[in-house]
Design a protein around this nucleic acid. Structure first.
Lengths: 243, 243
DNA sequence: CAGTGGTCTAGACCACTGA
DNA sequence: CAGTGGTCTAGACCACTGG
């Protein structure tokens, strides 16, 4: 049996069934970003369809950002390339107008807790690991983050050596837990700083705050992370393209 | 000569040349949203390529949002369907939780002026028509807007009967001036209200404000509108999807 | 019913990569 | 150089629309 292709709803077009079939093979972790998936010709023979149909199926996954074509070489899984940094919401200009510096990350807390209501609602469980960190640009604190991930999917996260937790979590999710973040939704609103946040960001309680709530999903659209981040509203600047 | 197809850079693939060729015919206003463009078979014969190549060219324009396919009927120009309302940045909930009401628009000013610096920079000219309006949801003022459009492209806009200026400007640009807004970029930041804005929005001077600066472009990527809109930061809520 | 877009085939040749 | 994806052809049949 070829992995759900012939088992899928036969009323659906072949390229859809093939796309879904490939998608679940990706979700199952059959391929890595380093080795190409089978060539179009190979897939065509394997699934007994024409190359054109394979191309249409692969096109879909490329559009979704799951695969990447490299002419002359092959088609590869795209790792968590996915530029989703929360810094994109803040003007990353140096005061002197020079190039933006590298973001740094200071771990403040990491432990298993019962999820607060919003996180539990988003993740569908209240057994989570909580991560709190402060993110800075050239020693200026910019973002205060609370992150919640389900314990079930991230077994052993708490015991990871601290240096392994760089500023980028999504590559780490992928390499240590096989969790590939495919998409996320960010919700931005406006509020004021409480004592804790104000102290961390070195602003005054009551100062205006931009608040970003994010839910991240894996390939199978299961929520795998919820976070809430705050930064001074004065530094907030976001560009949205509409088509 | 078939409209730049055979005149284009022959090193480019046929489907690219065909796509650009169709795109400029659209920009020239050869088709309306009511009548279909020539069928795929017709275009294939006209341009002497295969139907598959026509499909790939049309696919590109459909992805860009310029065209719309209707199976069994034809392929049509998409008017300014384009949901770009600035209200999407604000929580459109009624206090009683009912469905959102219809936005209304109150015209405050409309006249030819010299564009302020930011508008002139975006539009590439300082000969503009300025429109000021207050936008409300069920009699609550929500957004205060200043809009600038180049006089050259909107000859006679000032003398349009006032009732013609509904809440939606982009359909009006299209129908009266043949200007089709294809894309826009919105830039969001936070600030505080000055006297004028505060009075219009019925808030206090110094109250926090969400500020949206928009530049809109036509099919040929020429900027054709610049606007700045302000609303209370407390009502601000924006959802961003990342893939 | 004729005409449209939607799916699919079985080839061909080209441009590019990497051993 | 063999193998990959990128372009292109000339058909076929299907599903749907509208007169």
């Amino acid at each position: 049996m070829i992995d759900g292709f012939a088992a899928g709803d036969m009323r659906l077009p072949a390229y859809i069934r093939l796309r879904d079939s490939l998608s679940s093979r990706i979700a199952r972790g059959e391929w890595t970003p380093e080795t190409p998936i089978p060539s179009e010709g190979r897939l065509a023979r394997e699934f007994k369809v024409s190359v054109g149909t394979v191309r249409k199926a692969v096109d879909g996954l490329v559009d979704e950002g799951l695969l990447e074509r490299r002419q002359g070489s092959g088609t590869y899984l795209r790792g968590p390339s996915f530029n989703a940094t929360l810094f994109r919401f803040f003007a990353m200009r140096e005061s002197d107008g020079s190039a933006p510096s590298i973001p740094s990350s200071q771990l403040i807390l990491r432990s298993a807790v019962k999820a607060p209501q919003a996180a539990a609602a988003a993740l569908g469980t209240d057994e989570v690991i909580k991560i709190v960190r402060l993110r800075s640009l050239s020693d200026q604190p910019v973002l205060f983050e609370e992150i919640y991930i389900p314990t079930a999917r991230f077994e052993g996260f708490e015991t990871l050596p601290e240096p392994a937790l760089g500023p980028l979590l999504y590559p780490l999710y992928f390499e240590h837990f096989g969790v590939l973040v495919k998409r996320a939704t960010d919700e931005v609103s406006f509020g004021t700083a409480n004592e804790t946040v104000a102290q961390q960001l070195r602003i005054q309680p009551g100062d205006p705050l931009a608040i970003i709530e994010r839910t991240a999903f894996d390939i199978e659209d299961t929520p795998i992370e919820w976070r809430i981040a705050s930064g001074s509203a004065l530094g907030f600047r976001y560009r949205s393209e509409i088509n």
